[in-house]
Computed example of a mutant assay.
Amino acid sequence: MAILITGGAGYIGSHTCVELLEAGYEIVIVDNLSNSSPMALNRIAEITNKNFTFYKMDLLDRNGLDDVFSRHSIDAIMHFAGLKAVGESVRLPLTYYHTNIMSTLVLCEVMQKHGVHKLVFSSSATVYGLQEQVPISENFPLEATNPYGQTKLMLEQILLDLAKSNEQWGISILRYFNPIGAHESGKIGENPNGIPNNLLPFISQVAVQKLEQVNVFGDDYPTADGTGVRDYIHVVDLAKGHMRALERILGKTGVDVYNLGTGRGYSVLEMIAVFERVSGRSIPYSIVDRRPGDIAVCFADTSKANEELGWAALRGIEEMCKDAWRWQYSNPNGYEQEELFATN
Rank of each mutant, 00 (worst) to 15 (best):
G82F: 12
P141Y: 00
M39R: 12
S137Y: 04
G254N: 13
F80S: 06
T53M: 05
S303P: 03
A342Y: 13
D220I: 07
G13M: 04
S122G: 11
N63G: 02
T262F: 00
G265Q: 08
S267G: 14
A23W: 03
V255E: 09
I12S: 14
V127R: 07
D323N: 13
V110F: 00
L159T: 01
P201S: 03
P147V: 06
T53K: 01
R291M: 14
I249Q: 09
A40L: 04
L238I: 08
T262S: 05
E167M: 12
L83G: 06
I12K: 09
D256S: 14
E338M: 15
I27E: 08
S37M: 01
C17Q: 00
V106C: 00
E247I: 04
P284I: 05
V208F: 12
V18T: 00
L269S: 12
A9F: 04
N42D: 01
G280K: 06
G170T: 09
H72W: 02
G189M: 03
P284Y: 08
E19C: 08
Y11E: 06
M154A: 15
F140G: 00
V274N: 02
R175S: 14
L314S: 13
E308L: 12
A324H: 08
N215V: 01
D256E: 14
I44S: 05
Q150E: 15
K240E: 14
N35Q: 14
D161P: 03
Y335V: 06
L60F: 01
A144K: 06
S185Q: 03
A305T: 07
D161H: 07
H79P: 11
S330F: 09
Y329P: 00
K187Q: 03
L162P: 05
V255A: 10
G254A: 13
F177N: 02
W311G: 09
H114C: 02
Y221G: 07
D231W: 07
G251W: 08
W169F: 13
M1D: 15
R71H: 04
R244C: 10
Q112T: 05
S122V: 03
E46R: 11
I203W: 08
